[in-house]
Design a protein around this nucleic acid. Structure first.
Lengths: 95, 95
DNA sequence: TAAATATTTAAACGAATGTCTAAATATTTA
DNA sequence: TAAATATTTAGACATTCGTTTAAATATTTA
């Protein structure tokens, strides 16, 4: 969980995730979207992969990245507890 | 948005949020939950407040912290795009 | 096989982060 | 008013993070 939240923390990585909603892409195409070196993007992709937010599949000399349901499910379920709180707020403590 | 994700990134801060599901608490009671100095917790509370994830209300010499719907709504709406991509089941409660 | 292409790994470095102790501020109580 | 309590602010410091350039690995093409 720690690594998944960490992966989501960076703005560039969040942009990569949003970009991938449009469909799977190879590393080079992803890197083109950003004014940043390819090694930096490669590093961000690695962290997103560690957080189970994307999948990597090697296709020849390319590596195709796509969104991974698993990481999003983790975060989604963490938020469910709060969704319930806001629907049924508990009384404040007595002072 | 940046500051909200940043606030959620730290494990101690996430624990504070989960703790507050149980109801509003003053800073001292929150600090008791952790083996960490009060100034550190105070700092974490400040970041959570900046991220609109908690509210602070002064009551005498105490400061009462409670969950703030606003920050959670922000993150939740960001996730909606992915929920649609993955076709997550819709939650019973909408944030 | 050699060159070109795609991507990652390694090393370095400044900036940001989380923690601590000490001091400051605000409020309540004796 | 002085002391006690609650909390924050300030300053310091080690660790983590994001970025870069240079080098390495893997694959395809000429």
């Amino acid at each position: 969980m720690e690594i998944t939240f960490k992966a989501i923390n960076d703005p560039t990585r969040r942009e990569i995730l949003v970009f991938l909603i449009g469909g799977a892409q190879n590393a080079g195409e992803i890197a083109k979207q950003f004014s940043m070196s390819k090694p930096s993007i490669s590093h961000h992709l690695d962290l997103l992969k560690q957080g189970n937010l994307i999948l990597a599949e090697k296709k020849g000399q390319y590596i195709i990245y796509s969104l991974n349901r698993s990481g999003f499910e983790l975060v989604h379920s963490w938020f469910q507890g709060f969704a319930q709180y806001f629907e049924f707020p508990k009384p404040k403590i007595r002072l």
